[in-house]
């Protein structure tokens, strides 16, 4: 099975879990972990920048479309697209570090949170405020980091197991390097 197909399945599952479960669990402080982002980072680290960008855009668009329709179409799409691209392009630099996925996840969560509020500020949304960032962003990043070991483990196992070692796609050059990460 192609790594891309596995990535699509993983991201779709993450989106569904995110909107149907995580966003509805009444956790303290009223925010939820960003599972989609973690899975996206994991996928991008394995499959590269293009997959990260496309996967981020599509899953973000799905998040925008699915209820609760609190965001404009494209808001998450832009943010997750950037996050996936950056994670995918950073992947090759230090691939043996076991901390890298988690550091990337934390950074991505921080960046997406800031970007989300930033877009809100640009669009003149009344709910977006700096006080909200200070209050909720650390909690969101913390939750996201908390679930990241499990989510990243699952992503890595799935990609390794279902994506064939000799997947021709991975030999196009662009993806070949990221096929054999330690995790």
């Amino acid at each position: 099975m192609s790594g891309r197909i596995v990535a699509v399945v993983l991201l779709a599952g993450a989106v569904l879990v995110q909107v149907t479960i995580l966003n509805r669990i009444p956790l303290p402080w009223g925010v939820a972990p960003d599972l989609v982002l973690v899975v996206l980072v994991g996928v991008a680290l394995r499959l590269g920048a293009v997959c990260g960008a496309v996967g981020g855009f599509c899953s973000g668009l799905a998040l925008d479309v699915l209820p609760p329709t609190e965001t404009e179409l494209g808001r998450y799409a832009v943010l997750l697209c950037l996050a996936g691209y950056l994670a995918g392009s950073l992947a090759g630099t230090d691939r043996d570090s076991p901390v890298l996925p988690f550091a990337l996840t934390a950074l991505a969560a921080l960046g997406v949170g800031l970007g989300f509020t930033g877009i809100g500020l640009v669009l003149g949304e009344s709910r977006a405020s700096l006080a909200g960032i200070v209050q909720f962003l650390p909690v969101t990043v913390g939750y996201t980091l908390l679930i990241s070991p499990f989510a990243l483990f699952v992503v890595s196992r799935c990609l390794r197991r279902f994506a064939a070692q000799r997947d021709p796609l991975w030999q196009e050059g662009e993806f070949s390097l990221r096929g054999d990460r330690a995790w």
């Binding site: 590269g48 920048a49 293009v50 960008a53 496309v54 855009f57 973000g60 668009l61 404009e72 179409l73 494209g74 808001r75 799409a77 832009v78 697209c81 950037l82 691209y85 995918g88 392009s89 090759g92 877009i119 196009e172 050059g173 662009e174 070949s176 390097l177």
Partner: peptide, 28 residues
């Protein structure tokens, strides 16, 4: 195989996606 050959394509993809995303965002 990684190198200059890969970068333009991924940047192009990124640019297309970002532009469409921003357009969508602006319109919506």
């Amino acid at each position: 195989t990684v190198g200059p050959r890969a970068a333009p394509r991924s940047r192009l993809v990124l640019a297309v996606l970002l532009i469409s995303g921003v357009v969508l965002l602006a319109l919506d």
